[in-house]
Nucleic acid binder design. Structure first.
Lengths: 229, 229
DNA sequence: GTCTATACGAAGATAGAC
DNA sequence: GTCTATCTTCGTATAGAC
């Protein structure tokens, strides 16, 4: 905190940490979490393999740090926009609720400058990650805000039972995940760019997505659920 | 083909192959493909590790066989129902098209008896798998039929451009995947059963899903896409 | 032909020396 | 803070029992 030598080493360590976070965001998003080896990661970051363990404890600790760094802004904005909706006019429209949740997610791209597409792809990847431990890490991060939104949807959709609310909420999450990660797009267009497959990602059409989700929810209201015959 | 000894060994081999397929369907679905080691797999199947290599050549060969076995019926029924729609009344309704695609997927559960939930979860897992090689294997299997449906959606939605059609088609796939795998459900209800988290899975409400997708598509039609400002 | 036991190289994560 | 050594586990290949 005082000596110039200490500052030097401190800056070096901070820089290594930063580079590890950046590389992890990019590589986890591009190749997947499991598929990204610590060696490839530390090579890209220009550091030794053991640096991950030193700075983050483990690969999982690194993942947790990346999720925290990338999702914090989204969480905060979602919470803020829900605050606004709740303190405003009583009847909360479904469209407004959907928009308040979806737009901060899409906004990931703008919020991170040139790393925007990396960040968006990383989050899309994490959201569509089947591994239970990864899901857990993500859930811990977004749980508080998501809980508030789930409750808000419940109040805004009084005609739906608990299962129905969860259904539409899950649908919204799924759609956001799918369009953000671009998973299915690669099926019928495996080769787009040469090096990175990142180009157009994140430029999701907000209006289209909000319209689809809102329309889907409203349609669910009129269609009565078929119970077992 | 004749002797009783040969029949005996033949039955034994078929049984091992069957058990490997069954265990793979279950474990790949429960833990994920990467996360399932061949040793855990062969332990569950009560066979030796080399059996996978003998019967399927490799882990990837085994995965391919499971995908083939589980998706063949779905593919066939989807193709059949599209045939029926195309040979019937000219104006093909969106709802009918959605239903023809979605219902065979949900029908996975009924079509496989007591293994239904295993099969459904496996397919859900594969559909939401980020790994490029896994996606490729799945794509090879469903490509022909999916191509026909994509074209059919294009004809049924003449007001949408190519991107718009891909958007709604991707949305449908994503919703089917999310609800079939139950990915997001586990977020707010991590502990449901003790051993297997399979219980209610696959009992997706058809009407709800069809209504949501159809409503979403129709809503997309009216909402004009926002192009770059 | 079917299956088992065992070995091999590669890669991951981590502990402990420096 | 960094690096090297090690321990584990992975997927695969091979030799031989039945």
């Amino acid at each position: 905190m005082a000596g110039s030598d200490q500052e030097h080493t401190a800056r070096q360590s901070a820089s290594t940490r930063e580079r590890l976070l950046e590389s992890a965001t990019r590589l986890f998003g591009e190749r997947g979490i499991e598929a990204t080896s610590l060696r490839a990661l530390t090579d890209a970051a220009g550091s030794n393999i053991a640096a991950v363990n030193y700075h983050f404890g483990s690969k999982e600790g690194l993942l947790r740090a990346v999720v925290d760094q990338t999702m914090r802004a989204v969480n905060d904005e979602r919470a803020l926009r829900l605050d606004e909706l709740e303190s405003a006019a009583r009847p909360m429209s479904i469209a407004a609720l959907v928009r308040a949740f979806v737009e901060p997610g899409i906004g990931l791209v703008e919020g991170h400058g040139h790393r925007g597409s990396d960040v968006a792809r990383f989050i899309g990847r994490v959201m569509s990650e089947p591994d239970a431990r990864v899901r857990q890490i993500f859930a811990e991060q977004v749980e508080p805000v998501e809980g508030r939104y789930l409750a808000a949807f419940g109040r805004a959709l009084p005609d739906l039972d608990e299962d129905g609310v969860r259904f539409v909420y899950t649908s919204m999450l799924g759609l956001l995940s799918v369009h953000q990660s671009g998973s299915f797009t690669t099926l019928w267009a495996p080769e787009e760019g040469s090096g990175t497959a990142a180009s157009g990602l994140g430029i999701v059409d907000r209006e289209r997505l909000v319209a689809f989700i809102t329309g889907g929810i409203l349609a669910t209201l009129t269609a009565r659920a078929t119970t077992v015959p």
